[in-house]
């Protein structure tokens, strides 16, 4: 993960400059993190407008309050954690505003077949099966999987973002992976089925 390390150093440089009032550095930070943050927000909110606003709100808030933010060690996890907290607050506010809106306290992540890449590029059935399996995971396991494999964050960073300890992240990951390993069997079975069909013909 050497790449990540140098990445963080660059992000840190931008952040320090932004903290001193450099809008261009702040812009660079935004451009670098936008895709990941937007995707994360979208996974949690499942709405384009809301996700765009969430990222905007996050950057505006950090800009306004930058003088009060203590030294950041890891820029990316910091932004993810801040975004997550903001979205959770958003959910809480919604829940407070109207009891009619039945929302769970925790936002839920939904995976779609497009999120999954299998070796055989065109295997839509397998993609569907995997996404289905992923969606059956408990909320927290889903979020861990998302941060681990979509955002390429290490368990320590995930722990920081989700506000849980390292051990919990490992446990959640292991539990999720245990269930997902079944997919390997599944893909083998599907391949076998193909094979049989081929043999028959």
């Amino acid at each position: 993960m050497l790449q990540d390390k140098s990445n963080n150093e660059q992000l840190l440089k931008w952040w320090i400059a932004a903290r001193d009032g450099d809008v261009q550095s702040f812009k660079a930070l935004h451009h670098h993190l936008f895709e990941g943050l937007y995707a994360y927000a979208f996974k949690l909110l499942d709405d384009e407008t809301l996700s765009n606003e969430a990222v905007q709100d996050l950057f505006v808030k950090l800009w306004v309050r930058k003088e009060f933010i203590n030294t950041i060690q890891q820029v990316k996890p910091y932004f993810y954690a801040a975004l997550r907290k903001q979205i959770l607050n958003h959910f809480r506010d919604l829940k407070l505003k109207s009891i009619k809106i039945q929302l769970s306290q925790q936002p839920d992540i939904a995976f779609s077949p497009e999120d999954i890449i299998v070796k055989k590029e065109s295997d839509f059935i397998l993609q569907q099966k995997i996404s289905l399996l992923l969606n059956q995971l408990p909320k927290r396991q889903k979020e861990v999987i998302y941060l681990r494999y979509f955002e390429n964050l290490d368990p320590q960073q995930i722990a920081e973002i989700m506000g849980i300890n390292y051990q919990s992240v490992s446990n959640l990951t292991q539990k999720a992976l245990h269930k997902l390993r079944a997919v390997k069997m599944l893909s083998m079975l599907i391949s076998l089925a193909f094979l049989f069909q081929f043999v028959k013909n």
């Binding site: 936008f34 995707a39 999954i116 890449i117 397998l126 494999y149 955002e151 997902l180 390997k184």
Partner: peptide
Amino acid sequence: GLSFKFRRKPTTKAQCDAN
């Protein structure tokens, strides 16, 4: 032990700039 990987839904440059 996973036989698949994940892909993040990409965003466009325009989307990023607008944001």
